[in-house]
Design a protein around this nucleic acid. Structure first.
Lengths: 110, 110
DNA sequence: AACGTATATTGCAATATTACGATATGTTTG
DNA sequence: CAAACATATCGTAATATTGCAATATACGTT
């Protein structure tokens, strides 16, 4: 159907999936990488950096913001976007937890 | 259009996005969590664990496999699925790198 | 070989995503 | 206030994803 049965999964699972989903597009990875590289939180240069039209980028930024991956605050004429450390740390913890579980369970299956 | 302009992004960006995308669905998160919990690499119980029909789960497993997140090997009558440690470690490294960059750049913007 | 069990594939309907032109909104500057 | 700029929203077309019933495939057992 294309409709995701979110009701059947836990709040936690849905939220985790949402963060991953937000990062599941090369343009959005590129945006995140750019925000990391541009130490200070840079504003509208993203449109010039990516091979996508302005409305498209605006839409990607919106999705990243909805998922909590980035934050945006109005800074006069421009809007200042930057990463939300909380979410990145949260992701680090989720993946780190998975990796640790794998390291601990030295299964010799497969 | 719904078509992703993968050509315009780096191989690396596309591959990273693909892994995130594979994890960007609650059912697939649930599958990964189940594979982590069931220390030995369990086979067909996943269908009984999730509130989804068998073809749907088969499809999700296929997507996880395509992205390299899980591995499947035929084990007689059943098929044995388990996580691919490589990819999880790779993800750990990607996210860890991002988190470290954020920690190092103590920007006071936003 | 015939049956049961486990998983994959096909086909299709419903919905979501991606992309962008056109346009709206808001802000600074002249 | 008007012009210039930055960003968001709307509308729409193309494509992708999600979900499942039906069916196919593959293996082990009788």
């Amino acid at each position: 159907m294309g409709i995701t049965k979110t009701d059947f999964f836990s709040e936690q699972q849905n939220q985790t999936a949402n963060i991953f989903k937000a990062l599941g597009h090369p343009a959005r990875i590129a945006i995140v990488e750019y925000l990391l590289k541009a130490k200070s939180c840079i504003c509208g240069d993203i449109v010039n950096e990516l091979p996508l039209a302005q409305p498209t980028i605006s839409q990607h930024l919106k999705e990243l913001k909805n998922a909590g991956v980035i934050q945006g605050s109005i800074e006069g004429k421009t809007i200042c976007y930057c990463l939300n450390p909380e979410i990145i740390y949260q992701l680090e913890s989720i993946i780190g937890g998975m990796a640790n579980e794998i390291r601990n369970q030295n299964s010799n299956c497969c």
